[in-house]
Design a protein around this nucleic acid. Structure first.
Lengths: 367, 367
DNA sequence: AAACGGATAGCAACCGTATTCTGTCCGAGT
DNA sequence: ACTCGGACAGAATACGGTTGCTATCCGTTT
């Protein structure tokens, strides 16, 4: 009776076709125990004699066995996976949030799926459908949207569907769709951030401030505009004078084009810019430089997001920092521990932002 | 009798606990057909009467049924998922590759998992183990490594293990571990790119060129150094004069510190820099600016990777562009269609790079 | 000495789908 | 009228694990 030694034998008896991966049955056979015993020896949740456990472990190593996650998920109905849906993984904003999700997921022994929606709500719904099939632990939807009744209904529906599938819907950086829904919401201070940013500029003596970038009905834009308006109003200024709020895009090109056109058309009738993000700011700075306008001597500029690029612009860009990583981490943490009394009550949180001071803002010149 | 209309009834008969998600059985019961018929009506691979199909589809909609991906994977042994392992999802280099992977995965109706290794080979192996449990379609390992016999053995082992699990190992941006292994390799021209870059600088009259950044034994560094050496040698210059090759780091800070120290310690004894990547270049440019050295008037600088940041530096950075997205796409495409005769023979490809000309390189000043 | 109970291990019943194998019905061909 | 084959639907089984229940062995307790 051979095979007393540890020689590795192929899992399949017959040698005809392609070798299959080893199953729990192969392990059981090799260790000379039942399938149930193998399962228990590996799970560690059930008493198994040390000698038996050793034999099983030996067989596992010999056969390079790993459990079949699908078979396991089938009985347990948990798949140890977190999914993130974002508009574009290559964007620094989203990839940093994904980074946070990954950190926490990894810490909680979960894998992470990443799906790109390209900003298309229909595709988003379609992807959630696919993820529902996966019985993922949580689905994190990232990024601003247009807040309409239709949006709220859509999210409410997804929340309920995911809930009955045992998954948790997490909205990250977008508003809550309503009360009493099985949903986790992790936001960051857009209104407050813009308020602080505008106040900071006004503290430096600026009165003629441009709000540059953003797309109209999007909640993120609306919230920031709200903060901007409140800040100006608190100093008895109006944000709604013509030509002060320049939304309509959020790309580098938009920042460049808009400021360039403004400089060609008008007097230099502003002393500061609050930009949608650092990229828009970069575009604006390029246009200003080309026009010979000194930054920050003549015009101060404040970015948003505090991206990598901020410190390499000339001058280095002062920017509103968003806790990207913490957003991602919180999303996962709150979703997974939603039963835990410590966090059960905080299924809707709002993280703060802060200004990182560099060199692109200076006291306004006297009028 | 009963329920002739389309009234929605809960999937579970008893109403006690939390509602479960609908299963194929629920659908079958509601449509008044067998489970097998539902499966077939939905797969479309088998003749089903139109009336029956309609009833099934109706039931599916009423119950918000989606198949259980795990159950399906269990019979089919395919999970419709691609996994990417990279060092850090927040880095632009990796996130752009992930972007390409996502594009192709999405086009092939696959989901994408993203795992972060933080550059730790052990963690990489551990993650592959987890992914083997998932019977993923392909596992894409991204990023340079140290090419040792031990590395090759490790990869060979993973390749075989994944192969018997029906998955494909893809190495992206790292060398092939050897012949006759079930592995797909997608590289990009490091040696060639550095050769072209150095040649471009020399075409502009530069003779004293610094190679700035990279970590010693890493294959990517070695390949680029090789290209750099070959280029210089082709013009009868030696790359190995002291102080010409400055490796030891690949961060912005490294670029800044190294150039700053050099300028403090030595004469300005170079006219051009070939940087490891755009970030290192940005750091170097900051150090040069602080020292009052004009770029590109006095020193030209060439970046690598052509990241977003390149166009916003002052001056805009000329850089070697790597086909990040195409790397990711090819990785997935080749892995999934490896049986297809059209690509079966090209399981090891090398994509080219090119120089994107902006404003950071100028003719060298006459000596 | 008999009964008891803790420590282990095996049997078998699921988990939700896909698929093979049968079986029925019905129209068409002879 | 009878047979034959195609179209369709159902029963049964396989996929790879997990887990409740049962069975055995043996040292203890009364």
């Amino acid at each position: 009776m051979g095979n007393r030694d540890g020689a590795v034998t192929p899992p399949s008896a017959e040698d005809g076709g392609t070798p299959r991966a080893a199953t729990i049955r192969d392990v059981a056979a090799r260790a000379g125990v039942s399938v149930a015993t193998v399962s228990r020896a590996l799970s560690g949740q059930y008493p198994v004699a040390n000698a038996t456990r050793a034999r099983v472990q030996r067989a596992v190593r010999d056969l390079d066995y790993v459990v079949n996650a699908h078979a396991r998920a089938l009985t347990g109905s948990k798949s140890k996976t977190i999914a993130v849906l974002l508009s574009d993984i290559a964007s620094p904003f989203y990839s940093r949030i994904a980074h946070g999700v990954e950190q926490q997921a990894s810490a909680e022994k979960r894998l992470m799926m990443v799906c790109a929606t390209h900003g298309d709500p229909e595709r988003e719904v379609g992807l959630v459908e696919m993820l529902r099939e996966q019985s993922v632990d949580a689905v994190v939807l990232v990024g601003g949207i247009v807040d309409t009744p239709e949006y709220r209904e859509r999210m409410a529906r997804l929340a309920r569907l995911l809930d009955t599938a045992g998954s948790r819907l997490v909205l990250c950086g977008r508003p809550s769709p309503g009360e009493d829904l099985p949903v986790t919401v992790v936001e960051y201070e857009n209104s407050g951030g813009a308020f602080a940013a505008a106040s900071y500029l006004m503290d430096k003596g600026h009165r003629d401030i441009l709000f540059l970038g953003g797309v109209g009905p999007d909640t993120t834009t609306q919230d920031r505009l709200d903060g901007f308006r409140r800040a100006l109003a608190s100093r008895d200024l109006s944000a709604d004078e013509p030509g002060r709020i320049l939304t309509g895009g959020n790309s580098r090109q938009f920042g460049y084009d808009t400021i360039r056109a403004r400089l060609l058309r008008e007097e230099l009738d502003f002393t500061a810019i609050l930009a949608w993000d650092d990229l828009v700011a970069a575009g604006a700075m390029t246009a200003l430089r080309e026009a010979g306008v000194d930054v920050p001597g003549r015009v101060s500029i404040l970015g948003y997001n505090d991206e990598q690029i901020a410190q390499d612009l000339v001058p280095p860009l002062t920017s509103v920092s968003i806790p990207h990583t913490e957003l991602g981490r919180s999303a996962v943490r709150l979703a997974l521990h939603r039963e835990d009394p410590a966090v059960a009550s905080s299924q809707h949180i709002t993280l703060g932002t802060h200004i990182v001071v560099r060199g692109s803002v200076r006291e306004a010149a006297r009028r």
